[in-house]
């Protein structure tokens, strides 16, 4: 039976925690990435950081859009890293391994976020 009014489920809590992690990573990307860009380095991090922060915020709001923003940033990350280092596993490891693991978790949150969205819609229609 859908939990319409009461407390959040464990998976919802985990989704929120994941959102917080993504916001923190995104903030680091934006701040440190801006620093790097101003030092003449790669602009990838500051660019990628913006959808990460936004995605995390939307996840906290229980919006599916958050997950898709993360997955979009992940796709951008893969394209960028292949452009930067090619198909070199050693070099793809730091660029894509962690983000992809995180991406799998984010994909798993999509049904949870959907449920949260449905619940909110229900609540709004009540």
């Amino acid at each position: 039976m859908p939990n319409t009014y009461g407390s959040r489920t464990l998976t919802e809590w985990l989704t929120l925690v994941l959102g917080v992690v993504i916001i923190l990573v995104g903030l680091f990307f934006v701040i440190a990435g801006a620093d790097l860009a101003m030092l003449g380095g790669s602009v990838y991090y500051v660019i990628c950081g913006i959808p990460l922060v936004a995605g995390g915020v939307f996840m906290l709001m229980g919006r599916t859009l958050g997950a898709f923003l993360y997955l979009g940033a992940l796709a951008y990350t893969w394209v960028w890293s292949l452009w930067e280092v090619g198909f070199s596993p050693v070099d793809l490891l730091p660029r894509d391994f962690g983000p992809t693991l995180l991406g799998i978790l984010v994909a798993l949150t999509i049904p949870v976020l959907r449920r949260m969205e449905t619940r909110r819609t229900l609540r709004e229609t009540v």
């Binding site: 990573v25 680091f28 990307f29 440190a32 990350t77 730091p94 391994f97 962690g98």
Partner: peptide
């Protein structure tokens, strides 16, 4: 390099 983009970014800044 690094385990993740986080420490890689740290090292990129250190390099620059």
């Amino acid at each position: 390099w690094g385990m993740s983009p986080i420490d890689q970014l740290f090292c990129r800044i250190k390099f620059r």
